[in-house]
C-alpha cells in the first residue's frame, strides 16, 4: 500500500496538489488525499469480474473478457492518451515479462491492458502500442491492448476492481492508481501489485497465487514449493519470505537430529559400562 501511494505521488505532478495537512495550499488549488485512490483490497479480493464484458483490441478484434479466462490474467488499467505513468506502467510490465523465465506469456498466462478513458478507441490503443515501440511477436500473442466495446461498461469494470480515478483539470490528465490486477483462471481477483518497479519474482509469485488451485491439483511441485515459501505483505506490496515455514523446517531437522544423536552418539560405550558406571 505504501509503495502504491509513493508511485501515485510520483505519477502526478507533485506541486499541483498539497497533501492534507501540508501548509501553503491556496483555496484555488486542488487538494488530494491520496487515500481516496487507495484500492480497498480486502473489499475487492475474490471478486469475480464479469466474463461477459465485451472489448475491442488494438487490431480491431472483438472479444469477451471471459475469452481470456482459463489461465491467469494480468489486468492493467491505463488510458491511451497518457504520457506519464501509463506508458511507464506498460513498459515496465514488458521488461518484467521479458525477465520472467518460469512462465511464458500466452501459454501460461495472458495480459490485458484496458482503457478507462471513454474517449479511447482501438486506433488510439494502436498508437499507444506504437509509442511504446511496438509489440514483439513473442509478447503480442498473449498481450492485448483493448478498449471496452461499450464505454458505459467502464464503471462496471473499475468498480469491480476497486479502481478509483478522476480527471485533473489543471494538469489535463487522469489521476489514477498504478496497479496490476492478477485474476485467477476463473476471473476472480487474487492479487494487486503496485507501481512501476515490481520485480520478476513478485510477478512470478503473483502468477503462482493466481493459478494456485490449478498448480495445486496438477502436481507442479516446484511451483507449489515456491508458492508456500513466500507470503504477500499488504504493507509492502510485495512478497516476502515466509519465515515461520523455514523456522519450522529447521526445527524439524533439529528434532530428527536429536533422535539420531540419542541413538548413535553413545554407540561406542558398552551396555554394562553405562549401566553400572
Amino acid at each position: 500500500m505504501r509503495a502504491a501511494l509513493a508511485v501515485l505521488l510520483a505519477a502526478v505532478a507533485l506541486p499541483t496538489f498539497a497533501l492534507p495537512g501540508a501548509p501553503g495550499g491556496g483555496p484555488q488549488r486542488s487538494t488530494l488525499d491520496p487515500a481516496v485512490l487507495r484500492i480497498d483490497e480486502t473489499r475487492h479480493l475474490g471478486t469475480r469480474i464479469d466474463p461477459d464484458l465485451r472489448l475491442i483490441d488494438a487490431e480491431g478484434r472483438r472479444f469477451r473478457l471471459g475469452d481470456l479466462y482459463g489461465k491467469p490474467l494480468v489486468l492493467v488499467l491505463s488510458y491511451y492518451g497518457c504520457d506519464g505513468a501509463c506508458p511507464a506502467l506498460n513498459g515496465n510490465l514488458r521488461q518484467t515479462i521479458e525477465a520472467v523465465r518460469r512462465y511464458r506469456i500466452g501459454s501460461d498466462y495472458r495480459v490485458l491492458t484496458v482503457s478507462f478513458d471513454r474517449h479511447d478507441t482501438p486506433a488510439r490503443a494502436r498508437a499507444f502500442v506504437k509509442r511504446l515501440g511496438g509489440m514483439p511477436p513473442a509478447l503480442s500473442a498473449g498481450w492485448r491492448h483493448a478498449v471496452l466495446a461499450d464505454p458505459a461498461d467502464i464503471p462496471r469494470l473499475t468498480e469491480a476492481v476497486g479502481y478509483r480515478y478522476f480527471w485533473s483539470v489543471q494538469d489535463r490528465m487522469f489521476v489514477h492508481p498504478n496497479a496490476y490486477v492478477f485474476l485467477s483462471p476463473e476471473g476472480r481477483i487474487v492479487r494487486y501489485l503496485y507501481g512501476l518497479k515490481i520485480g520478476p519474482r513478485d510477478f512470478e509469485l503473483a502468477l503462482v497465487d493466481a493459478a494456485w488451485d490449478r498448480i495445486a491439483s496438477s502436481g507442479r511441485v516446484l511451483d507449489l514449493l515456491v508458492g508456500v515459501c513466500f507470503s504477500y505483505s499488504y504493507a509492502d506490496g510485495r512478497y516476502v519470505l515466509n519465515y515461520p515455514l523455514f523456522a519450522g523446517i529447521g526445527a524439524l531437522a533439529l528434532g530428527i537430529g536429536l533422535v539420531v544423536f540419542s541413538l548413535t552418539v553413545f554407540r561406542r560405550r558398552r551396555t554394562g559400562r553405562i549401566g553400572h558406571a
Binding site: T47, D50, D52, A152, P155, R156, L157, E159, A160
Partner: peptide, 8 residues
Amino acid sequence: LAPVLLLP
C-alpha cells in the same frame, strides 16, 4: 450499474 456486473 453495479448489480448488473456482479449478479450474473
